[in-house]
């Protein structure tokens, strides 16, 4: 009813503040400052522990490795901001690699393999969208089901074997432009485009409105059904792109590529970046930092030759810490 707690207005504060005796976290006026701090800590720790971390080769390698995941995470950020969820993106990535790899292995032209597999990915995203929009089943349930289903389809397409594409895609996977890995270039373009859409287009703002309150969005003249279908379709298309990127880096598709584990890492990155699970809030910058943090942690564990068993433990721990920090941050605001 009343003014409650008005926004802290930063530099314009002039009135004396009463001393607050309670212990409090450092004031996080810079967005994502907690996340940046965490990233700096990990990087500093890694540089002390091993000389091979802070080398151009290694850093570029990290960035190449996180590129495909970053593309998924970008699509997921937009979707989750609109209150949606897609657990099947990693599995769509897997299916894309399998379809493209089989086509190339069966002597089809590379461009055809790319077009067909990405079309398949887009259609899969749209199917998720149709089911979610028209049955009103929770997206969590729908996409977890399709994820499991597609992980199986993936194995069927590969017939359980590894399929190599040789050097057909190595220009994308290993090539560089002006010294920057091509994979990284693609990821940066996708992230930048997503950030632009979210901030400067009405479609992006529709996503915030739908995530904030779907009823209000519909009553305000936003075509919610169409927006959701586009968002799920886009999630599928970006998964397809990520699939091609992954295939080019690994030079083949084999059981165990992508799938649900890749998806969970992407969800973790988005959540670490501060996007709300309830929708209505999200930033690409946060997601990018989340992707980087998880990528760097994985790389450091690798360099320190720590058993891969600890990989899952570290992703889980980072996610937990970041989620708690976000929550504390939001509550203080």
């Amino acid at each position: 009813m009343s003014i409650g707690s008005p926004a802290r207005t930063g530099a314009s504060e002039t009135a004396p503040q009463a001393p607050d005796r309670r212990w409090r976290l450092p004031d996080m006026r810079i967005p994502h400052s907690g996340l940046i701090l965490m990233l700096i800590l990990v990087v500093a720790l890694a540089s002390f522990q091993t000389d091979s971390f802070l080398t151009t080769t290694n850093l570029l390698n990290v960035l190449r490795q996180v590129s495909a995941g970053a593309v998924i995470a970008a699509g997921l950020t937009l979707l989750m901001t609109a209150g949606g969820m897609d657990f099947s993106m990693g599995s769509v990535v897997a299916v894309t690699t399998a379809v493209a790899a089989q086509l190339i292995a069966h002597d089809q032209p590379v461009w055809l393999a790319i077009v067909v597999s990405m079309a398949v990915a887009t259609v899969l995203g749209l199917v998720n969208g149709l089911v979610v929009t028209f049955t009103k089943v929770a997206p969590f349930v729908v996409t977890l089901a399709t994820a499991t289903l597609l992980d199986g389809v993936f194995l069927v397409i590969l017939e359980g074997l590894s399929v190599s594409v040789g050097a057909e895609l190595s220009e994308l996977g290993n090539g560089t432009t002006l010294g920057v890995p091509n994979l990284l270039v693609v990821a940066v373009i996708v992230l930048a485009a997503t950030a632009f859409v979210m901030r400067y287009t009405v479609f992006g703002r529709d996503a915030f409105a739908i995530g904030g309150n779907e009823d209000v969005a519909r009553l305000s003249g936003i075509n919610v059904v169409r927006a959701k279908l586009v968002l799920y379709g886009l999630a599928g298309a970006l998964s397809g792109l990520a699939g091609i990127m992954l295939l080019s880096r690994l030079a083949g598709s084999s059981p165990g590529t992508a799938g649900l584990p890749m998806q969970l890492t992407a969800v973790a990155a988005v959540v670490i970046g501060g996007t709300s699970l309830h929708g209505g809030r999200g930033t690409v910058v946060g997601t990018t930092l989340g992707v980087l943090l998880l990528g760097v942690v994985a790389n450091v564990l690798n360099l320190l030759q720590i058993s891969s068993y600890y990989h899952l433990i570290s992703v889980g721990a980072v996610l937990l810490i970041a989620a708690v920090a976000n929550q504390l941050h939001n509550r203080r605001k």
């Binding site: 915030f208 409105a209 904030g212 309150n213 009823d215 209000v216 969005a217 009553l219 209505g280 809030r281």
Partner: peptide
């Protein structure tokens, strides 16, 4: 609250 405004925007 539920049909008029989007509180976070």
């Amino acid at each position: 609250r539920s049909l008029g405004l989007i509180p976070d925007l």
